[in-house]
Simulated assay, not measured.
Amino acid sequence: MTSPVQLEDAVQLEIAVQDAAGARIAFASGADRVELCQALAETGGLTPSAGTVDAVLEASGGAERVAVLVRPRPGGFVYDPAEVALVAADVREIVRRGAGGVVVGALDAEGRIDSEAIRRWIDAAQGAEVTYHRAIDTLSDPVAVIDELAELGIRRVLTSGGATRSIDGLQNIAALVGRSAGRVQIMPGGGVRVGDIGDFVAAGVDAVHLSARRPSGDQAPSGPGGGAAGFDTTDPEIVAAARAALTGAIARR
């Protein structure tokens, strides 16, 4: 096992996982933190079940090592009052169960940060870390909202720099790092490959986010309810390679 970075190091490795098995693999292979979600491949990630949260927390060895995505449905990020209330309730319950952070995002009908929803969710988090997710990548000028997110109390931003693959948004990610000036952590995510990590570290990011997935190989029929056969699992070799690339990039800075 390759050791994760120490807390004083600037850049951490976050792996997106969907279950306790994935969390155990991620941590054993060198991850510093996991983001827990469900239906990642199908929807981009949704709120996981309470039982899954509990299992991942038990596998993590520390609540600060687990951030939980709270997203009530697939699709866009404009939420009605009932959905905002649902996310607040889920955030409150996930933090009560022991998670060290939550991952949320909302926009208003004009395509701006929904500051009212974000304030409500930060309040519901009761001091746990709050990450603003890739809803920021739908904005025409994501750099311009960093000041607002910092003032709201957002701890971290997950972003591809507005590109399909984060490496193609590197210039915007570097601009986000500069605008943030340490007030909000900037974490590239979205199509990240191991070979991209050195460029992100050179740009000054605070963390790197990968899904590190591979097909399970299970081709059993999904049943009468439909859906694709098989499922994704966390690949220890990808995580370990990402850990090694990150450690090497930090050493070269």
Rank of each mutant, 00 (worst) to 15 (best):
G169Q: 05
V208N: 10
S211R: 11
V194S: 12
G204A: 11
P188M: 09
S180K: 08
V194D: 12
T159N: 04
A207G: 07
A175W: 01
Q185T: 09
S160V: 01
A174S: 15
R165M: 06
A220P: 00
V192Y: 07
D168K: 02
V201P: 13
V192W: 07
R179P: 00
G178L: 11
V208S: 07
N172R: 14
P215S: 11
G190T: 09
G178D: 15
I173V: 14
G217T: 03
G198V: 09
V177R: 06
S222P: 00
S211F: 00
G198P: 02
D168P: 05
S222K: 10
S160D: 06
G195V: 06
S216Y: 01
R214H: 00
D218W: 00
I186H: 09
A203E: 10
L210E: 03
G178P: 05
V194Y: 09
V177F: 09
Q185S: 15
D168F: 04
A207N: 08
G195N: 06
T159P: 03
G178E: 15
R165Q: 14
D168E: 15
V177L: 07
G191H: 12
S180Q: 08
L170Y: 05
V177G: 11
G217N: 02
S180L: 04
L210I: 07
A203F: 04
A181W: 00
A212S: 13
V157C: 05
G161R: 04
V208G: 08
A212P: 05
D168W: 05
D206Q: 13
S216D: 01
L176T: 04
G161P: 05
N172Y: 00
G223M: 07
S166F: 02
S211M: 00
V177Q: 11
T164R: 14
R183M: 11
S222M: 03
A175M: 11
A203L: 10
A163K: 02
L158M: 03
L210A: 11
V157F: 03
V157M: 01
R213Y: 03
A181S: 14
I173G: 10
G223H: 01
S180I: 07
L176K: 01
I186E: 06
L170C: 10
S216E: 00
R179N: 08
G178I: 05
S222T: 12
Q185I: 00
L158D: 06
G217I: 02
D196E: 10
R213T: 11
A207Q: 13
A220I: 00
R183K: 14
A181L: 00
A212M: 04
R193W: 01
P215N: 07
P188E: 08
N172K: 11
G169C: 04
Q185N: 08
G191L: 08
I167D: 06
A175K: 13
A181K: 08
